[in-house]
Write a protein that binds this DNA or RNA. Structure first.
Length: 501
RNA sequence: GGCCCCGUUGUGUAGCGGUCCAGCACGCGGCCCUCUCAAGGCUGAAACGGCGGUUCGAAUCCGCUCGGGGCUACCA
């Protein structure tokens, strides 16, 4: 009896292929997570290819932003325009001669043809078809079989032709998807594959590049299902073997439409970094949107755990609503899992990135305060952005602490006794630790003045933090030190006496 | 309009013909803990879109229907 043999999975090459149209989209990361998981799980490679074939939509600096986001998320490609690789160039705009060559090859073989129709003629054609509500739509093959001169004598003629696929009657009607199994597809129309400007359309470029780059698994959004037969046709004509396809479900806005930057600020990948989310939490969240958690009782997981049990058949087919509620919890969970030093470093880095400024006290070093405050912040943080407002009172000058109206209003009418007792008690504390401070205050206020703890510490909290709600009081006081605490206690006492209203 | 994809609590999911009067996570309610707030523990409410089949038996299979989404560009 031998152990059951694991099936041998060859190393997969996957790619993510964003367009450089400005801020990277969250969908890019979503797909990249699955791309990387599969590439790593099989010992293959993850490739970044820039799909810059639409010159009208290109935005300067996009490529750097794409790399920034992928690096931040820990989804750095193995090959791409920055690092290079064996099958470059990795920008489609640098591969134009390749696309033209294959397009002309297809024309020569009778699988494609030139089309001189003007955009206006095509628009009119579409409008007619839409108005007639006819079942048959798509290009009418007006130019098929015509020479340039013949076509030039007809209306709607453009000087520079495009190249269209000549879709045969036996075009593929289905294919097998890694996620969905057998999928039926619409009958394609005579798609343009090479535009008048010499650039390829997505359809030609993706086939040529995936083949030439050795991509074995093409992960892409569900919106591509209906154009898959066009790609299959191209593979057939070119004599190439198509990759395995994995069509991911589409992320959606709250109204269930395809996620868009307009309807959802979080559709911008950079938004998460700006909002103080941890990259590992976002990755964990994206995994969960299309895949069951790997643990039975918690959904907090590492990328390695996700990757370890990866199976395309377990990827979901329904498009999830992109609801950040769970991400908030996940982010807190990942923050709590961080070592104190690591968390402190991330908070400081976040402040650097967001240009956080500090009051000039000259007394406290923000980095030191953060490090000391991490233990009391850790289980209270949802995002890194919560850190500063949570401990700003520790960094404020003692004589310029903001006492919130709401906090003052919540105090009992006369707090002078409690504040006086607190001052006296603290003056006698030698070693100003949280434990010692607590002990002294309990003795003086709870026992000495017979106050309930809740009532007793309220004025002290307001005096020290300026707020009704704060991180743990005694630990905060220990970080501030005795002098600062006494100054703040006295300040509130003075304020109370002067303005008894 | 045509074609394609999808449909389990508020959200994300488990479920692959009986063990499901449907499990888990987040969120929400309550209780406990407690210096406030959290975190943590316990606990509660909350779903198989509908209708017909198949079957001894259906969330699971089939059909229809309704609903949502995508595509239908010289955009990706």
């Amino acid at each position: 009896m031998t152990a059951q043999k694991m099936p041998v999975i060859p190393p997969a090459r996957t790619r993510v292929a964003p367009s450089p149209t400005g801020d990277p989209h969250v969908g890019t990361a979503y797909q990249a997570v699955f791309d990387l998981a599969w590439a790593r799980a099989t010992g293959g490679a993850f490739v970044l290819r820039i799909e810059d074939t639409d010159r009208a939509r290109e935005v300067e600096g996009s490529e750097a932003q794409i790399y920034d986001c992928l690096d931040w998320l820990g989804l750095t490609p193995d090959e791409g325009p920055r690092t290079g690789g064996p099958v470059g160039p990795y920008r489609q705009s640098e591969r134009l001669d390749l696309y033209r060559r294959y397009a002309e090859e297809l024309v020569a073989a009778g699988h494609a043809y030139h089309c001189w129709c003007t955009p206006e003629r095509l628009a009119d054609l579409r409008a007619e078809q839409a108005a007639a509500k006819t079942a048959k739509t798509g290009y009418d093959r007006c130019c098929l079989g015509l020479t340039r001169d013949e076509r030039a004598r007809m209306p709607g003629f453009a000087e520079t032709p495009v190249i269209r696929m000549l879709v045969p009657d036996d075009a593929p009607g289905e294919f097998t998807d890694l996620i969905r199994g057998d999928v039926k597809t619409p009958f394609p129309d005579d798609q343009v594959i090479l535009k008048a400007d010499g650039f390829p359309t997505y359809h030609l470029a993706v086939v040529v590049d995936d083949h030439l780059m050795g991509i074995t698994t093409a992960v892409r959004g569900e919106e591509w299902i209906s154009s898959t037969p066009k790609h299959l046709l191209l593979y057939r004509w070119l004599g190439w073997t198509p990759p395995a396809f994995a069509h991911m479900p589409l992320l959606r806005n709250a109204d269930k439409s395809k996620i868009s930057k307009r309807k959802n600020p979080a559709a911008r990948l950079a938004w998460f970094r700006e909002a103080g989310y941890l990259p590992e939490a976002l990755v964990n969240f994206l995994e969960l949107l299309a895949y069951p958690g790997v643990h039975p009782d918690t959904e907090v997981q590492t990328f390695a755990e996700f990757m370890g049990a990866f199976d395309w058949a377990k990827v979901n087919t329904t498009g999830p609503i992109f609801d950040l509620t769970k991400l908030d919890w996940l982010n807190g969970a990942h923050i709590r899992a961080l070592a104190d030093d690591d968390l402190a470093a991330r908070i400081i880095a976040y402040w650097d990135e967001t240009g956080q400024t500090f009051p000039a006290t000259g007394r406290l070093d923000p980095a030191r305060v953060v490090r000391e405050a991490v233990p009391i912040m850790k289980e209270r943080l949802t995002t890194l952005a919560d850190a500063y407002p949570m401990i700003d009172f520790l960094l404020a000058p003692d004589d310029d602490l903001t006492l919130e109206d709401e906090a003052l209003a919540g105090l009992p009418g006369d707090t002078t006794d409690a504040l006086d007792a607190a001052v006296t008690a603290l003056a006698g504390v030698d070693d100003f630790t949280a434990e010692a401070v607590q002990q002294a205050l309990r003795t003086a206020l709870v026992e000495g003045l017979s106050l309930k703890p809740k009532v007793a510490f309220a004025p002290v909290r307001v005096a020290i933090t300026g707020r009704r709600v704060s991180p743990p009081l005694f630990e905060s006081m220990a970080i501030l030190g005795r002098d600062a605490c006494l100054a703040r206690l006295l300040a509130l006492r003075a304020k109370t006496v002067v303005t008894p209203s």
